[in-house]
Structures are given as C-alpha cells and as structure tokens.
Design a binder for these strands. Structure first.
Lengths: 217, 217, 217, 217
DNA sequence: AATGAATGAGCATTCATTCAT
DNA sequence: TATGAATGAATGCTCATTCAT
C-alpha cells in the first residue's frame, strides 16, 4: 500500500495536514526545481515544522518522489478512465485531448513537476514511479490502436507501438504547452498570443491532425 | 558577433581550449542541471583554473547562457539548411527526421541541455536566446505548409500554424527520446528495447504518421 | 526596540551567548577592520556555528552595524549621564575626561571599532547609527556652553558651536590615544613612555588647556 | 635614500609614470581601504601592467607603505617649513591652521589615507614610517612651546609635552574634518551645513580656542 | 509526537601574485 | 624590461538534516 516514499507516520496525521504538505511541496518543487527547492520553505508554506517533515519523509528526495507519485496517480486516473471506456477510438482520443486541457489547467504545478522530473538529475530515481504509468498508458494506447486496426477501422499499414508513441508525444507536448512557461511562450509564437483562449480550435485541429494520421479516408 | 554572454578574453584563447571549456560546461550542466552544476568541477573537467573561467565569463549564469546559445545556433543551422531547400514538403520532412536522428546522437549533451532549459527556474533568461530560433522554425514550418496547401498538395481544411506546431512537437519529442534518459526509457516501453537500433523504422513510421495527417489520399 | 540590525531570533538566545557573539564580533572587527574580519572566525570565537550567526544576522554588514550600534549606545549612556547633570561646566568637563579614561580602557575594542568605522568604506552605512549620537552630543555641548556664556561664566566672544566642536575633537583624540595602537604610540612620542600610567596628569593638563580656552581669567 | 618600500626598478622609470602609479594607488587605497583596494585596478588606473607593478613593489603591502611614505613626507614638508620659521608662536600656529586648510583640500586622498592608516590592521607596519614624522612634529611643537614659555610669552604652569600633544590633536581632527566623509558630516552637525565654506571663521575661532589655552591674558 | 534552533559541509566568486612570452 | 593571462586559496553565505526539549 505504502509506496515507500513516506514513513508510516505520514498516514497518521490528519488528511487536511497531509494535503497541505503535499500542496506546499508540489508548489515549491515545481517553482524551483528539485535542487533549488527549499525544505524549510516547504515546512513554512505548509505550516508544519521541519522536524515533522523529517518524521514523515526520510529526506528531500523521498518527499520529491512522494509528490511525483501523487501526481502520476492523479494523471493516471484521469487517463485510464477514458482509455478504458468502450467508446470508439475517435471519441476516446477527443476526450483525452479535452481532459488534458482541463486537467492541466487545474494542475499546473503537477505538470511543471512532470517536466522538471524528466531532467537528468532525478530521472533514474523517478523512473521507478513513472514507468508504471507509462507502461499502463503505452499498453492501453497500443491495444486500443490494435483493436481499431483489426476492426478495419483505421489503416492497417502501421506499427501500433510507434503510432501509440507518437500519439502520446503529442499529448505530452500539449500538457507542457499549457503549463510550463517555456512551452507556453513557444506555443504563442507558433500559433499567436490568444491560443490560450482558444481551446476548442486547438483541440479540433489536433483531432484533425491525429485522425489524418490514423484513419482511412 | 559576440552574443554578450562571454567576455572578449574568451575569444583570445586557443580554439582547442575554448572547445574544452564549452564541452565541459555542456556536460556538467546537462548532467546536473543549472543549480547543481559545479563551476569548480567545470574548471577541473576542462583543465582550466576557476579564476580563468571567471575571466572568460561574468558568472555561472552567463556561462550557462553561452552554451545554450552555442547549442541553439548549432541546431538552428542544421534545421534551416533543410527547411530552406526547395525540395517538396514530403522529402523535407523526411530529411528533418533523419537529421534529428543524426544530430541528436552526436549532440546528446546539448539536447539534454535543451530539455533542462525548459524547466521553470531559468526559462525567462533563456527565452531571449531561444525565442529567436523558435520564431525562425515556427515561421518556416508555417510558410512551408501554407505553400503546399496553396499548391493543392496537402489538404486545405487545416490551420497551418497549429499543424506546424504539432509537427514541431513531434520533432522535439523525437529529439528528447534519443537523448534524455527519461524519454529514452519511455520510448523503449512504448516500442521495445531495440528501438534505439531501428532508426529506419522509427523514421518511416513517423513519416507515415505525419503524411497521414497532412496529405490528401 | 529592535534596531533592525539583528533578527528576532537573536533575542531568543541566552544573554550569555548573545554577549559571547557580540564580544567575538567586536574583537574580530576591531582587530581586522570590516573587510578582513572573518565571519567563520567570529563563529569559532563565539563557539557558535556559522549557520546560527546567519540565523541571528542577515549578513556580515548587519552584524557589523549591530555591534557599532551597541558601542554607540554604551558611549552615549556614559556621556549623557554626565552632560545632563546640572553641575557647573567646569566640573562636568572634568568628569567627562575622567569618564573617557575609564570607559575607554574598559572598552578598548569598541573604541578601536569607532576609529575603524570612520574609515571611508562603510561610513555612509554607519552614519545613520552614529549621527544620532553625534547630534545628541553636539547639541548638549553647545547648549552647555551657551548657558555658561549667558551666565557670564565664560567668555562671550566665542562661537559656541565651533568651541563645542573643538572640545569634542579633544575628547575623541583622547579616546583613540588610549585605545588604538597607532594613536597610543603617537601619544608616547609626544609625552613619554609612561603617559599611560599618568592619567591624573593627562586629565589635569587637558583640563587646564580647556579652561584656558573657555574661561575668563 | 630608498625608503625600502619600492624596488630599484621603480626609480628607473619616467617621473611621469612613477607619479601616475602613486596617484592611482593613493586614490584606490584611500577610497577602499587597504584590504578592499585592488592591485589590478591600480594597474589599470595607472595604465601599467600588474606585472610591472610587481616589478616595482614586492607586494601590496609595500606599495601601500610606499604611498604612505610619500604622503607623510609631503605633510612633513609643509609643517616643518612653518614650524621652523622664527615668527612668534601665535602667528606660527595661525599659519599652520591655514596651511592645514589649504593642504588638506589639495590632498584629500592623502588625508583619508592617513586616517585609514591609523586603523589597527596596518598600524604596526605603518608606524615605522610615521613615527619619524610624529617625532619631528612632537619635538618641534614642544620646543616651540618651551621657548615661548621661557620667554614669558605664554603661561608657565603647563606641561609643554602634553600641550603640544593636545595642540596636534586639534590639528589632526581639523584635517580629518576637511577630508574624511565621516568627520566632515560630524563637523556639519556641530557647526552647520555651510562650515565648509567658512574657513576664516573656523580658523579664527580655533585660533581663539588655542590662544585662550596657551596665552596669559 | 512536534518543534525549530543548531549544525557545518559545500559552492560561487574574488584577487594577490606568478611566469611564459 | 614589460606584459597580462593564469592560478587557486580564501571567504561569505545557504540549506539539508539532526536532536534536545
């Protein structure tokens, strides 16, 4: 049950306090990156003593991993819900795109964290946590595509693994483009200052892009 | 000529030494990220004294910006060459994909740096340098697509800016997938352990993906 | 109450520890001057960690200003006590001279610090703290003289501000001559090796000098 | 002949270059104090290479001592000229006061340097150079006073050494009050913002102060 | 269990001094 | 003799982690 990143004591405190700590940590880590994030600041932000923080988490790294875990679980929940539904491929993809737009805006910090996380420093540590999700998504996408392919619904001359990969690549970049300053600026350059207010257009065109790639016409 | 990140003295030293410093800095920054990168280590790695390093660069930040600048210029050169050629859209895209595969493998550190750079901390500083390149690429892709659209070569119901954006998103993720540990692992999960040896397949399928998205069938 | 140079935490530690820190700082700064004073040494001397020192004071400068403040307050207390008494001018001056001799010997480091402080580097920062005291003394001396002048007790053809200034000049040099190596050596050259043991003579003659300057005969 | 602070080579360069170096050094040391003064800056300011500077002076300290020496010699020359004249005491003192006002304004840097020099750090090293001058002045003042005393020109109940000492104290403070920021501000507080433009008043009142102290009335 | 003061290793940066040219 | 690039020890300050209360 325990993901191994927090100590048992962390589960003995009130739900509210636990959340305060996680929120503070997510904010701090996503704003400053792992190295510059300050444990003492996280303690202040969450109105908890440093001492306590170290009663709940072995060290800075584990606190980081714990929140990455939380973030991943949250995203996984959102995606699985959609992918596992038995609607047809097209509408599932459409739902994912819209879900990404909503979820990313509501969890900007978590998304920044996800980007931060892919950085060299921490990647090996973090991989243990994330591989799980990536595995899940990768599998789901691939089988979703395979299914559609077998049903003659999409073209048959494609490698479903690679196509799943490219599809997810587009989704990841969409997330970052909505949450991370750098990618947001970049998107504005490509599309114009007001993209951020034109979610439907972005979704519609992305849908068109993907459909073209997948579907027979 | 001088990008403003290094002092004039940096240009007075031997080409070989200059390269040694840049390489050491690129390696250190890409391995540890800006904050954890150690100037003293860079000095040792490049067999130069710390004092000298500070004779060449105002401070840690400027050294970082200088190498980002170098990286960006290098990549820009590669891409512009291809995009500006007057071959047809299809073969230009194909060339870009292949160029990314080659360039990224040859410049793993620089690519890691690019990822590192998109991280919150430094993004505003770095943006000045990179926006330039993003602007160039964005414009080139968009006009390339517009042209093809007007020539009736690709479909006419698309927003060229957004399609250029999605296209570049795929390229960026391809780069990271070849250079950054995290993304490399992820790619393996999606496609299998041996992807890294199957460049042709990756390129071919990506080509198929993109062609589907763009071209009339 | 808080002069603004130390953080609140400084007042939460034991009186004894606080004094140890101030003493160590006063010694170090007065021995080496602001620039060469070593924070790490002050930490060792006062048997406190550097980290703690920085918990109590924002930075080196504030620590310096804090002890200057302490020194000034101490001296001010001594002088005000005497000047504000309502004895006659003559005996007040005599008391000041004796007080300087005693106080300076007991606070050699603080007096050295005062000298150090008048040095260019820090003067503007320090002025805020000291101007207060100088203002007080200047005013007190001047009104003391004015009063005596109006009472016909001393001569009437003098500018009380300038005479107050010259008087204080003599006092300042007396302080330095007892505390600072340079001025001490100088005094020995002027008066002989054993001046330091002849406080009464020094005081008596200075009294004579000043009385001549001020009083009608 | 060689004071021992510079190497022989220093005398082999042009008078003009030598002066440029001394001026730059005086300015730098008086502006920043010994520790913060920067040898490389002195080299730039005097348009001479650091290498050369080290050909002329053993190290930073010796350069400092060399300029102190110059300053002292300059001041000594001014004072001796006056003190050794055979005018009567009163007018010699008057001339000294005026000379101080003029010389100090013309040699602000040197005077700041003198103050800087009395600071603990350097005092023992510096003392060798200055003791010489102090000795000279002390002796001259004392014998000047003794003479006047024996001539019945001033009062006979005074210790000529101590009176010489107090007299010189007044002179030193006058110098500092014209040259050093800290003391200048202090003088303004005592006398008013426009003192700096009222040299005659300052001189006249100081004369009055001293005459009262010394002369029979 | 909770606190938060205390610790001290670690790193960016400066600058006196050297030495190859 | 003159140069100025190169050196690296030294120091202010930060922050993860500990531990006495």
């Amino acid at each position: 049950m325990n993901s191994g990143f927090y100590k048992d004591t962390f589960m003995k405190i009130s739900e509210e306090k636990r959340q305060r700590i996680l929120d503070a940590a997510i904010a701090e880590f996503s704003e400053h990156g792992f190295d510059s994030a300050n444990i003492n600041t996280i303690a202040q932000r969450s109105d908890v003593s440093v001492g306590s923080l170290y009663k709940y988490f072995e060290n800075k790294e584990n606190l980081f991993l714990a929140i990455v875990h939380v973030g991943v679980e949250k995203l996984k929940a959102v995606l699985e819900d959609i992918i596992k539904s038995d609607e047809k491929l097209e509408s599932r993809i459409e739902k994912i795109i819209k879900a990404i737009q909503v979820h990313t805006r509501e969890n900007v910090h978590l998304t920044k964290l996800y980007n931060e996380m892919t950085t060299e420093n921490r990647s090996s540590l973090v991989w243990k946590i994330v591989s799980d999700m990536e595995n899940a998504t990768a599998g789901l996408y691939a089988s979703m595509i395979k299914e559609a392919k077998e049903a003659g619904y999409i073209r048959s001359d494609i490698n479903e693994n690679l196509f799943a990969f490219y599809l997810d690549n587009l989704f990841i970049m969409l997330q970052f483009s909505y949450a991370c300053e750098y990618y947001k600026e970049r998107m504005k350059i490509f599309v114009g200052e007001d993209v951020v207010n034109r979610d439907e257009l972005v979704a519609e065109q992305l849908m068109k892009f993907i459909k073209g790639a997948f579907f027979l016409k």
